[in-house]
Design a binder for these strands. Structure first.
Lengths: 125, 125
DNA sequence: TATTGACTTAGAGTCGACTCCATATGATAA
DNA sequence: TTATCATATGGAGTCGACTCTAAGTCAATA
């Protein structure tokens, strides 16, 4: 697959795809004789992973380390697992924060809706 | 309340508290004769709101607008509600993204745990 | 074959959100 | 009163994560 195709498929800019590769967030991509990127199925798997993780805000640094560990081979399986477990913990925390904010938003929106009907906006502790 | 107290209470740096006020993310805080900030209960309410919203990643720009609308008075109630509804929509989307990432993390961690036992790491589509 | 278009790189620029710094002034303890 | 501490301001610096630019190369169409 060309970079244009991958860019469209995953809705990630070509600049970002090159950037991810440059910083080692994904392993080096195969090249054609002319030097152009030729994404394999495996490359696409990495792109998809990167997109998924980044969309949840997992930091780039963690993903670079994960990629580096993977390239080092099977003896890093435990380290990789621990890295993912740690990121999962942080992610759970974030989801909980967001859930709290969601509750607060619901509460405030509800108050505003009532105010629109009654014309009175009570004091919000 | 002094800025030091507020900073400790909400675990937000004094720099950030001043910054939020400067950019209008919260209304201007009362001052003592000497010019020092003297946070009222209402100020604290704004700080708490800011902290909650920011911890969920609601952008600063949206919060500045919300603050400005609030200061304009009761005729902006509908606009404020709509702003919050829009941010709620975006937040829900983010939570869903994170949930997907959570699922993927669980899946991958599970695979690594099995690999630790069996010594075999199967190919991950 | 000439030109257009896709792709390459290195490096600079941008953006959001702080965070730090220098300098000044008000407040408190010795 | 003097020294230290808390706070103030404006502006510069940092950091993460892209995003853009310039200059060059390779590939495909007229």
């Amino acid at each position: 697959m060309t970079i244009t195709e991958v860019s469209k498929k995953y809705d990630i800019s070509q600049d970002t795809l090159r950037y991810y590769e440059r910083i080692g967030l994904i392993p080096a991509v195969n090249r054609t004789k002319g030097g152009n990127r030729d994404y394999t199925e495996e490359s696409c798997g990495w792109i998809e992973l990167a997109k998924c993780m980044r969309s949840a805000g997992i930091p780039i640094e963690a993903l670079i380390e994960y990629c580096a560990l993977t390239l080092q081979g099977e003896e890093t399986i435990t380290a990789r697992k621990e890295l993912l477990v740690e990121e999962r913990r942080k992610l759970l925390e974030k989801i909980e924060d967001m859930q709290k904010t969601m509750d607060k938003l619901n509460y405030k929106i509800d108050r505003y809706e009532k105010a629109e009907i009654t014309g009175v906006l009570s004091w919000d502790k």
